[in-house]
Computed example of a mutant assay.
Amino acid sequence: MSGHIVVVGAGIAGLATAVALQQSGRDVVVLDDRDGTSTGYAITLWPNALAACDALGVGDDVRDASARAEAGMMRWRDGRILREPPNGQLTRAIGEPVAVTERNQLLAILAGRLTPGTVRYGARVARVRDGLHGTSVELADGEALTASAVIGADGIGSLAAQYLNGPLAFRYSGYTAWRGIADMAVSEELAGITLGPGIEFGHLPMPGGRTYWFAGERSLEAQRASNGEIDYLARKFSDWADPIPDLLKQSDESSVLRGDIFDRGRLRRITGGRVVLVGDAAHPMRPHLGQGGCQSLEDAAVLGVAVSERSSLPSAFREYARQRKSRTRTVVNRSRHIGHATYARPAVLSGLLTRASARIPAAVFWRQLRGISGYDACDITVRP
């Protein structure tokens, strides 16, 4: 085991990173405390994520397993159109349509690229240490593993991030979000987001004639609907523009996830010695740009290039951190700014800011979108 790189976490970031490392010729083991099952919501993959998937050798498989969305409609709650991109404009601006697939499907595709036996489920990591004689990972059952390096892909509360930075600081954003899947198809022309003062609802096509939807509103922390989330949302959005009420009617309670949105304080470092962070462990972000999973895939692709080009893992990790610092900070900050505007107080201010954002000149809007989603993580130069 001492020659392996240990990846902590078998989510998108962890599996994608393991794929990239195996492609670079490294031995890898992935540890995850779950039983191998995962929550079955959908994920949007923008062209920057698809470019990273291409670098990982799974791009075609991901596209084949996805529905494609091109519209990007922006409406007010009563159905009035705030922004309607011309037909084909989204693809012309960013290179290809957005792919929408089930998260479990993406995980299965990534796992299928790994050497059998790479992933160990039911292995909860309790401690990470980096010493003179190697990096060690201690499991909750007392087993200790020594590895050539540790990749922290263990999410927003990452143990690896705590090892590198000490206690992590979290702050509730003031709003909560839902994600669900409706067993019905909607017109592709309506794909996009519908807004109200301090509240939003979006929907995108999925394979199999289904629809992925998401919603958010200001809320006290840790609230739950007494009669179920679907019942609550159906009443909340009952008078909103079609097809939103019907989407909720065609959604099962078991398909709905509710989660409060938190910000985490900026880390002092994402690498140190033979420990490095990827995905939410390195840079958790609010969901408004749909870039959380996309940035995880970018991380994996960039880290794979750095490890391939550098003989020393600590040197490769430092190069990866240098490459990702500005990029991820931009996406994190942009996502946070959108959240501030969408859920500003009082609600009337939120409505004004939302409507104002729809008046951004088209050239500026597309340039900003292209800067986020038209990025190719593998079009980088590794410094000698």
Score class of each variant (00 low, 15 high):
Ser2Arg: 10
His4Trp: 12
Ile5Ala: 15
Val8Lys: 06
Ala10Trp: 10
Ile12Lys: 03
Gly14His: 12
Ala16Leu: 07
Gln23Gly: 15
Ser24Pro: 07
Arg26Phe: 14
Asp27Tyr: 13
Val28His: 14
Leu31Lys: 06
Asp32His: 10
Asp32Tyr: 13
Tyr41Val: 09
Thr44Asn: 09
Thr44Glu: 04
Leu45Ser: 07
Asn48Ser: 09
Ala49Gln: 04
Leu50Gly: 12
Ala51Ile: 03
Gly59Ile: 00
Asp64Val: 01
Ser66Met: 06
Ser66Asp: 11
Arg68Tyr: 05
Ala71Asn: 05
Arg80Cys: 04
Ile81His: 02
Asn87Gln: 11
Gln89His: 04
Gly95Asn: 00
Pro97Asp: 08
Val100Tyr: 03
Asn104Asp: 09
Gln105Pro: 04
Leu107Asp: 04
Ala108Cys: 00
Leu110Pro: 05
Gly112Ser: 02
Arg113Pro: 06
Arg120Ala: 14
Tyr121Pro: 05
Gly122Glu: 04
Gly122Thr: 01
Ala126Cys: 13
Arg127Phe: 15
Leu132His: 10
Leu132Asn: 07
Val137Asp: 08
Leu139Ala: 14
Leu139Cys: 14
Ile151His: 06
Asp154Cys: 08
Gly155Trp: 12
Gly157Pro: 07
Leu159Phe: 15
Ala160Leu: 13
Leu164Thr: 13
Asn165Lys: 11
Asn165Ala: 14
Gly166Pro: 09
Arg171Thr: 15
Ser173Leu: 06
Trp178Asn: 02
Arg179Val: 03
Ile181Gln: 04
Ala182Pro: 10
Met184Leu: 07
Val186Ile: 13
Leu195Ile: 05
Gly196Phe: 00
Gly198Asn: 00
Glu200Gly: 03
Gly202Pro: 04
Pro207Glu: 09
Thr211Tyr: 00
Ala215Leu: 04
Gly216Thr: 01
Glu217Leu: 08
Glu217Lys: 00
Arg218Pro: 03
Ser219His: 08
Leu220Pro: 09
Ile230His: 01
Asp231Trp: 01
Tyr232Gln: 05
Lys236Gln: 07
Lys236Asn: 00
Asp239Lys: 11
Asp242Arg: 01
Pro243Ile: 02
Ile244His: 06
Leu247Cys: 06
Lys249Phe: 05
Gln250His: 13
Ser251His: 02
Ser251Thr: 13
Val256Pro: 02
Leu257Gln: 07
Arg258Asn: 07
Gly259Trp: 01
Phe262Ile: 07
Arg264Gln: 12
Gly265Met: 12
Leu267His: 13
Leu277Asp: 12
Pro284Val: 12
Leu289Thr: 05
Gly293Ser: 08
Cys294His: 02
Asp299Glu: 12
Leu303Trp: 15
Leu303Arg: 05
Ala306Tyr: 14
Ser315Gln: 14
Ser315Ile: 14
Ser315Cys: 11
Arg318Cys: 14
Ala321His: 13
Ala321Met: 14
Arg322Asp: 15
Gln323Tyr: 10
Arg324Val: 08
Thr330Pro: 03
Thr330Met: 14
Asn333Leu: 10
Ala341Asn: 09
Ala347Asn: 06
Leu349Ile: 14
Gly351Gln: 01
Leu353Trp: 02
Ala358Gly: 02
Pro361Tyr: 00
Pro361Ser: 00
Trp366Val: 04
Gln368Tyr: 00
Ile372His: 05
Gly374Leu: 03
Gly374Lys: 03
Asp376His: 13
Asp376Cys: 08
Ile380Ser: 10
Pro384Met: 12
